[in-house]
Amino acid sequence: MLEIKNLCVSIENKEILKNINLKIRAGEVHVVMGPNGSGKSTLASILAGKTQGYDVTGDVFFKEKNLLMMSSENRSHEGLFLGFQYPVEIPGVTNIYLLKAALNAKRKTQGLPEVDAMDFLKLVKEKIRAIGMETDFLSRAVNAGFSGGEKKQNEILQMTVLEPNLAVLDEIDSGLDIDALKRVSQGITAFMRPDRALLLITHYQRLLDYVKPDYVHVLVNGQLVKSGDHRLAIDLETKGYAWVSNEK
């Protein structure tokens, strides 16, 4: 579904990502772990189409299409979703308005008619209950005055409504209390299907107690230095990132 080949990213001649190679097939859950400043969030942003200030070389194919040539919105329409580490606030715009606009923008590119307000409300209420959130969430302004946990849950809600093929979730587990982590994990588990894939970016192993990864990759100083299965995450948790760096 996603193939990253020799991806290099720099900003003002400073290398952030070096020769990244990664292949994600449908049905797989991948995790990228790494210390602060290793380039994890940059990887997520580049995949989602943030270009400003970045020099990018290499290739990225998504569903066999050249991803780097597409605009952010086209990537979204194609089925790539980024769950933001810091979701922005949009005062005065309700959650339901953004959700509906986003869904209809996608449907339009697929040649489908817009969902009307009543149908949409029904749909979104089903989705929101499925992930254990309150419906009053919908009438609040996008992320404005939300707690850290609410913001992350909102990302999951958007993912659930937009039904992407590949979801890249950037530190979706940070700033969550145990209950919120559980709800977010439930949302992620419910999302996974054989025709979908996940790329989780995280610091911690704790999310992986709920969502079992097929592959774990370690990103240090912009390089993928080690890959393995879920046991790698457990090793990391006990031994720390220094262990991987030293081993290298």
């Binding site: 989602a48 189409g49 943030k50 400003q52 605009s71 952010s72 919105e73 990537r75 979204s76 329409h77 979703f81 980024l82 933001f84 979701p87 922005v88 949009i90 005062p91 005065g92 715009v93 308005y97 953004l98 606009a101 986003a102 869904l103 923008a105 996608k106 302004a141 958007q158 937009l162």
Partner: peptide, 28 residues
């Protein structure tokens, strides 16, 4: 902000629609 625009575009909105939505929220 660029961040607001990027966020909206990642959700599939065009730049124009994103601006219009943000401005509308501002004027609500």
């Amino acid at each position: 902000s660029e961040d607001q625009l990027f966020y909206c575009r990642q959700r599939g909105l065009s730049v124009e629609d994103a601006i219009s939505m943000i401005v509308h929220g501002f004027c609500k």
